[in-house]
Amino acid sequence: MSWKVNERGLVLIGCGRMGGALLDGWLASGIYPSAVHVVDPFPRAELRELGVNVGGKLPHAPAVVVIAVKPQSLDTIAEKLPTIGKDTLVLSVVAGITLSSWEAFFPHSPIVRAMPNTPAMIRQGITAITGNDKAERQDVALALEVMEAVGDVVELNEEAQIDAVTALSGSGPAYVFHMIESMAAAGQAEGLPLEIALDLAKKTVAGSSMLAIETNESLIDLRQGVTSPNGTTAAGLDQLMSPEQGLSSLISRTISAAANRSRELARGQT
């Protein structure tokens, strides 16, 4: 982890599931517990045992302030946001809160929005980031380093793309979990015990994902490699790839609905 963080400190506002996952990743990657200052109304009991600062006086000019609260909690924590200057990076992992909204709280600071997903809890996340006009290259590099503690990071060309990221990878784990549920239920309907069907579904999705990541073959080639002419996979794909009722159409509608909702939240619509 950057010397800046260990020397100047990091303030984490919100230490729930995502904030806690980030904290665990930072500590594992070499940040000093004494450099971390947590602001949370219900902090984990073991934080003090780890040597993390909880509820104490915040550093005047930390290297980075990470805000990891739920969007609906922003009004309640607004008065608790620290006063910082242009030398502190503000890194938001709050869904639906735009850079311009954060600039109202931090008018002189470099600000980066990040959209991680829940596999960050096991350091297998994927995060997209985008910064405001005051975020220089070194600020973006620091944001990359902070978020890489819990997985891979991609940098967006413009903030408008974050709604698509939210819909695709931010919400995506929920889609995958539901697909696993549906596969297991279908396996059970075909005569498998639910426990076995669920194990098969989970590990099929996990193994297929790793194969797609680690191989040089295209997804089309991988799919065709499983599909024998007029075989069982082909019969299943006839249903899954139906132009009107197949998976592609359903996923397109799903991600579009989620992206539109992300845009509504950014406009302040509840």
Rank of each mutant, 00 (worst) to 15 (best):
Y32F: 15
L192R: 08
T232F: 04
I196N: 07
G131R: 00
I180D: 01
N216V: 14
E79L: 14
S248T: 15
I13P: 03
V5G: 00
Q138E: 11
G55Q: 12
G225D: 03
A149F: 07
S169G: 11
P110C: 12
A186F: 04
I129A: 08
S218V: 13
S100G: 15
A143L: 11
S92I: 07
N132H: 11
I84D: 00
P173L: 05
S171W: 01
G172W: 05
G96P: 06
E158F: 05
S34H: 14
T215E: 10
V5L: 13
A45D: 14
V112A: 05
Q161H: 15
E217N: 13
L198I: 04
D199R: 08
L240M: 13
K134L: 02
E195L: 06
A184R: 09
E214H: 12
A258R: 09
A257K: 14
L89I: 07
I129E: 08
V165K: 04
K4Q: 13
S92R: 03
T227H: 02
A143Q: 12
L23C: 10
G30E: 03
S208Y: 11
L91V: 03
F105Y: 03
I126T: 15
P82Y: 00
E145W: 09
A184P: 02
T127I: 06
I180K: 03
E195D: 11
A35G: 05
P41Y: 12
I255P: 01
R223V: 03
H108F: 08
G268Y: 05
S100V: 14
S209N: 11
V65C: 03
N117K: 07
C15M: 09
T227E: 03
L47Q: 02
I129W: 03
L198Q: 10
L12H: 09
H60M: 08
Q72N: 15
A174F: 11
G85Y: 00
G20E: 03
K57L: 15
L156N: 11
G16W: 08
H108R: 14
A235I: 05
N117G: 13
A143Y: 07
L168W: 08
L74M: 15
N230I: 08
L12T: 04
V146N: 15
P59D: 09
G56M: 06
I13Q: 04
I255C: 06
L265W: 12
V52I: 10
E145H: 09
A45C: 13
N157H: 15
V65H: 01
V66N: 00
